[in-house]
């Protein structure tokens, strides 16, 4: 790296890939791949997504691993940001669920509601079973 201009060029070139806002132009899928995610089974999830994206020939989709998203008990976590839409967080993923997300959400544009987080009595859960009080 010889100059700040070079750094700035890389920044501009890559900005759209990591843009978290709705004005991004491509779709980004990230899989939480820190120790917690991997231990919960994130590797097959990432592989399934990469396979599916390749199989469907999706060219404007970035698939990336990322670090700890923070909610370790809900790992593996997959997040999808489509252009013009807010980020969607999917929890407790497996390879089959991940393929469904690529097909229905990334391609079809329809959020797979049943895999998202939800809140019951102030507690974050991934299904509607309320922990027994």
């Amino acid at each position: 790296m010889k100059s700040i201009q070079e750094l700035e060029e890389i920044r501009k070139r890559t900005l759209d890939r990591v843009n978290q806002r709705t004005d991004r132009t491509t779709t980004r899928i990230v899989v939480g791949m820190a120790t917690c995610g991997i231990a919960a089974g994130a590797r097959p999830v990432l592989l399934a997504i990469m396979e599916e994206v390749e199989k469907l020939g999706l060219s404007d989709v970035t698939v990336a691993q990322t670090g700890c998203i923070g909610l370790c008990k809900m790992e593996p976590i997959v997040e999808v940001i489509r252009p013009g839409e807010k980020k969607v967080t999917y929890v407790k993923m497996d390879a089959d669920k991940a393929r469904r997300i690529v097909n229905e959400h990334v391609v079809g544009g329809k959020v797979v509601d049943e895999y998202t987080l939800h809140i019951v009595q102030g507690k974050m859960l991934n299904d509607y079973k309320v922990e027994k009080e």
Binding site: I69, K87, V88, T89, T116, H118, Q121
Partner: peptide
């Protein structure tokens, strides 16, 4: 209460 699409929207 209910479905939350993004983790960023939770109190957490």
């Amino acid at each position: 209460e209910g479905r939350i699409k993004s983790l960023n929207e939770t109190g957490f």
